[in-house]
Design a protein around this nucleic acid. Structure first.
Length: 205
DNA sequence: TGCCAGGCCCTCTTTAGGGCCTT
């Protein structure tokens, strides 16, 4: 696998669901995957400039006290921009993390050239029998060891990365395809679920 | 901060509605 196949799996904790409503990132966690191995990690809290709600404190375990001395979003995101470089990106429900990545980098302003693929959309196609497609459920469903705190950015990005690798291996074992290109994962997530089997069978060696 | 989003996906669909997933 060439360096071009390196991906960065990322996860934001935020003050809410929508940057257009004023929500900001409060933690970024990410792992870099090269040749099927985790080769780098990034994790930092960031101060959004206002108090987060008690719901978010409870949901993430990230308190206003913890954010008080954190560096501002702009500083952290500038460093994170260097971490992701031009690599392609993966997240669980990527449309959510993409909105925040775009919003935070637009403030700097910085750009990235990588493209997103989504572990949730891929999981919906590969694990149709899972109870649901929440990250924690899928980690359990795929029998991935987990002993950390879900809803913290680095832990969620780590288990998303492991889930991603397990899903690529599943495609390999079912259809004999290896390595799985990033473009193929994107194609699969845009293929209607009922056609995924057909697409993979068609390109089997 | 304070107006609560938005893209995907199924179905009792396509001139639509509602659940899922992310915080």
């Amino acid at each position: 696998m060439s360096k071009a196949n390196t991906v960065v799996v990322l996860d934001f904790e935020t003050t809410g669901l929508s940057p257009v409503n004023g929500d900001r990132a409060i933690e970024i966690g990410a792992v870099r995957i090269e040749e099927g191995e985790i080769t780098g990690r990034f994790q930092e809290l960031m101060n959004p400039g206002f108090q987060v709600s008690s719901f978010i404190e409870s949901y993430t375990g990230i308190t206003n006290g913890m954010l008080k001395n954190a560096r501002p979003c702009e500083e952290v995101m500038s460093e994170f921009s260097d971490f992701i470089g031009s690599h392609n990106l993966v997240a669980h429900n990527a449309s959510f993390d993409k909105r925040f990545l775009d919003a935070e980098l637009n403030r700097l302003p910085k750009k990235y050239t990588g493209e997103f693929s989504c572990s949730m959309l891929l999981a919906r196609r590969l694990y149709k029998d899972a109870a649901n497609h929440k990250l924690a459920t899928l980690v359990n469903h795929a029998k991935i060891p987990s002993d950390g705190d879900f809803h913290r950015a680095l832990y969620d990005s780590e288990v998303t990365a492991k889930l991603w690798l397990v899903m690529l291996e599943l495609i390999n074992s079912r259809y004999g395809l290896s390595p799985i290109s990033f473009a193929l994962t994107q194609k699969l997530t845009k293929t209607p679920a009922h056609n995924v089997e057909k697409v993979l069978n068609r390109i089997m060696p």
